[in-house]
Computed example of a mutant assay.
Amino acid sequence: MARGVAARADKRSHIDMKRRHFLTGAAGAAAAASSVFSPLAIAKNKTFNLAMVTSWPTSLDTLFGTAQYIGRAIEAATDGDVTVEVFPAGEQVGGLEVFDSVASGAFALGHTASYYYIGQNPAHAFFTAMPFGLTGMQQNAWLQSGGGVDLWNELNARSNLIAFTAGNTGGQTGGWFNKEINSPADLKGLKMRFPGLGGQVMARAGVNIQNLPGGQVYFALDRGTIDAADWVSPYDDEILKLHEAAKYYYMPSWAEPGATLGLYANLDIYKDLPADIREIIQTVARAANERMFSEYMAKNGPALQRLIDGGAEVRTFPAEVLQVLEKYTDEIQAEHAEQDKFYARVYEQWTGFRDSVRTWTNASEYRYLRYVNGDLA
């Protein structure tokens, strides 16, 4: 039997009220306050055992910890009628094999990043992060309120999947380098770990791209298999000890200004769950999305200072380098849009949202941040 879902007799009679309390209470108000479920919709005398594979090693307590949080929260909200076993990368499947494993039904759930799977369709990149794209808050707004999630699941349905926003790292960094980057020419010939469409942009700049899961990044950088690596941000980079394998820490993250992670579910398994359990999964995913975003925001400042105190040299990409990378981004976007009608449709919708939301954030947040940093008279 696949490890996705199984049922056994064991149910307490008061679960209907407890589930409704969760779905209409403060924890789930944003997603479920208007939802009403008939007791007849709730499967009686069943426990659903769901297995979740992830792309994260256990050491990354914000990434893997978010997957664990999702499992615990689903179990608590269903009073144990759903159990969730969460596996780190490599224990059941490789960190970059989550999408296919859940699509096949071998596992019910997966926690991963959509842009790892651009080899299947480059449009997957939109639903994690796009180079020179949306910040974390803007990405959340596009997916949850700007039509992005509907496009995401139109794409996912092709692989028998549905996904929910279930984590956002906020702004990331430009990565760790063993040499200074003073011009676009300094990128040529580098071997670098860099996922998503950003990796395609770097490849056009002359970088030899390696797509490695998180647990392998330090060893590759330390042993010289790669010369540079993009991961997440100071808190996770410190855990992975990337500062011990490279000296120069470049900012900003032109490729991932706000990266979304997804809770994927096998569509057949998901549809077979009772309606209230499906709603709980959605609500927990949204809570996890907010939780991760807040945790990274709180943890990254102190972690960055520790890295600096330990000898890391924080550098800023020269404008010339960013301009070249943005030019390559525009070229690649146009090529993908020409080759794939769905990509073109997402790109047009995404671009319209990006330009609209920037009208507001440039007038509000950007000007405020310029002032508090002394850049606005």
Score class of each variant (00 low, 15 high):
Glu154Val: 08
Gly148Glu: 12
Ile162Arg: 14
Gly175Thr: 06
Thr135Gly: 14
Ala157Trp: 04
Leu109Ile: 09
Leu151Gln: 14
Gly196Lys: 10
Phe132Gly: 09
Trp152Arg: 14
Asn160Ser: 12
Arg158Cys: 00
Thr135Tyr: 15
Leu197Thr: 06
His111Asp: 01
Ala125Ser: 13
Ser114Thr: 15
Ala166His: 06
Pro195Asp: 06
Lys191Val: 03
Gly133Cys: 02
Phe107Met: 09
Glu154Lys: 14
Pro131Leu: 07
Met192Phe: 01
Pro184Ala: 02
Asn140Val: 12
Glu180Met: 10
Asn156Phe: 10
Met192Pro: 01
Gly146Gln: 06
Arg193Phe: 00
Ala129Glu: 12
Gly136Asn: 02
Ile118Asn: 11
Asn160Asp: 14
Ser145Pro: 00
Ala129Pro: 02
Thr169Trp: 00
Ser145Met: 15
Asp150His: 11
Phe126Cys: 07
Pro122Cys: 01
Thr135Gln: 14
Phe194Gly: 00
Ile162Thr: 15
Gln120Asn: 13
Leu151Asn: 06
Pro122Ile: 03
Thr128Lys: 04
Gly174Ala: 04
Ala113Glu: 11
Ala129Cys: 05
Met137Trp: 14
Gly146Tyr: 04
Ala163Gly: 13
Ala125Glu: 08
Gly136Ile: 02
Gly198Glu: 08
Lys188Ala: 12
Ala125Gln: 08
Pro184His: 05
Lys188Trp: 03
Gly110Arg: 02
Leu187Pro: 03
Gly196Ser: 09
Lys191Arg: 15
Gly110Asp: 01
Ala129Lys: 02
Asn121Ser: 10
Ser159Phe: 15
Thr165Glu: 13
Asn153Ala: 08
Ala157Ser: 15
Ile181Thr: 08
Leu161Asp: 09
Gly119Gln: 13
Phe127Asn: 11
Gln120Trp: 07
Arg158Phe: 00
Asn160Gln: 13
Ala185Met: 06
Thr173Asn: 12
Gly196Met: 05
Leu109Ala: 03
Lys191Glu: 01
Leu134Ser: 10
Gly199Trp: 04
Gly174Met: 05
Trp176Asp: 00
Gly198Trp: 05
Trp142Gly: 01
Ala203Asp: 07
Thr112Ser: 12
Ile118Thr: 15
Asn168Arg: 04
Tyr117Asn: 08
Ala185Asn: 12
Leu151Trp: 13
Pro122Leu: 02
Gly133Lys: 02
Trp152Val: 03
Leu109Asp: 03
Ser114Phe: 14
Leu109Tyr: 07
Asp150Phe: 10
Phe164Thr: 01
Glu154Gly: 03
Thr165Trp: 10
Asn178Gly: 13
Tyr117Ile: 08
Ala108Phe: 13
Leu155Val: 03
Asn156Ile: 03
Trp152Asp: 11
Phe194Thr: 00
Thr165Ala: 15
Gly198Met: 08
Asp186Ser: 13
Asn156Pro: 04
Gly199Thr: 02
Leu143Phe: 11
Ile118Tyr: 07
Tyr116His: 15
Leu143Lys: 09
Asp150Thr: 13
Gly167Ala: 04
Lys191Gln: 07
Gly174Ser: 02
Gly198Ser: 09
Met130Cys: 00
Ile118Arg: 14
Asn168Leu: 05
Leu143Val: 10
His124Arg: 13
Tyr117Gln: 04
Thr165Met: 12
Met192Gly: 00
Gln144Leu: 15
Gly171Ser: 13
Lys179Ile: 04
Leu197Ala: 03
Val149Gln: 15
Gly196Trp: 05
Gln172Leu: 15
Asn140Gln: 15
Ser183His: 01
Pro131His: 06
Thr112Val: 07
Gln138Phe: 01
Asn168Phe: 03
Ala108His: 10
Tyr115Val: 01
Ser145Glu: 15
Ser183Thr: 12
Ala123Asp: 05
Arg193Thr: 00
Ala113His: 10
His124Gln: 12
